[in-house]
């Protein structure tokens, strides 16, 4: 075996090693859901292409992720429990009707938007009974890039949330909403919506979502909210 042959084998082995290293996440990844769980399948609306890049900064802003969202697994039997369920709000909407928030239309078009006035406002979905909720997906207005501030989601059994309910998301980093300081991130809206996964599940009949304006103006917008539970 001459020197050239030896080098050929050495580089071939290095090449195979590097290939295996790079391919290992795919080779060894386990797409199969954990026992007793199933992947949460979401119907996503068309993305919006256009507008101007967002010129917004916040110490709490999540970096924008253009990749597909990794699969999220929920216990078997979990279904969409919020479709066409009644919605109430802190104040009457200035545009659209509250029932649009649970009607399944997630399009970014203006006709799908429900707008609430400026300041801290909430919308609340009343489920038909108490469920164990495993995921909540929220689409604010996603025509263009916006960040909704003081976005807080609570689940509870009291329609007035006198007990405060159980917070499952809170990105109010300075307690300006007065509901406590949250550790969750602010994020840029897109067609994928925001999936709030609740691995251990939380029981409740009511889901309340707060927001306090957005990076573009002071208004509060909702396109769709989906609650998954069983």
């Amino acid at each position: 075996m001459n020197y050239t042959h030896k080098m050929y084998y050495v580089f071939s082995l290095i090449g195979i090693f590097v290939f295996c290293l790079l391919a290992s996440p795919t080779i060894f990844s386990d797409d199969t859901p954990p026992a007793g769980k199933t992947e949460l399948k979401l119907e996503l609306p068309e993305p919006f292409f256009g507008g101007t890049p967002i010129d917004y900064y916040s110490p709490n802003l999540e970096e924008e992720d253009y990749k597909d969202r990794p699969p999220y697994y929920v216990p078997e039997g979990v279904t969409l429990v919020s479709k066409d369920k009644p919605v109430t709000s802190s104040v009457p909407p200035t545009r659209g009707q509250l029932k649009q928030i649970t009607d399944g239309d997630k399009d970014y078009g203006k006709k799908s938007v429900v707008e609430l006035p400026s300041g801290l406002q909430w919308v609340q979905i009343e489920l038909d009974k108490e469920y164990t909720i495993y995921a909540i997906v929220v689409w604010h207005f996603h025509e263009g890039k916006r960040v909704y501030k003081d976005f807080i989601v609570t689940v509870g059994n009291d329609p007035e949330f006198k007990d405060g309910g159980k917070q499952v998301y809170n990105n109010d980093y300075d307690n300006s909403a007065g509901l406590g300081i949250g550790k969750d991130k602010e994020f840029i809206e897109n067609n994928k919506g925001r999936l709030i996964g609740i691995d251990e599940g939380v029981k409740g009949k009511y889901v309340r979502l707060y927001s306090n304006g957005n990076s573009y103006n002071d208004m509060n917008h909702y396109i769709e909210v989906e609650v998954y539970g069983k």
Partner: peptide, 10 residues
């Protein structure tokens, strides 16, 4: 200090 106060408020 401000955040401390805000937490205390809650």
């Amino acid at each position: 200090k401000f955040i401390e106060n805000q937490c205390a408020q809650k």
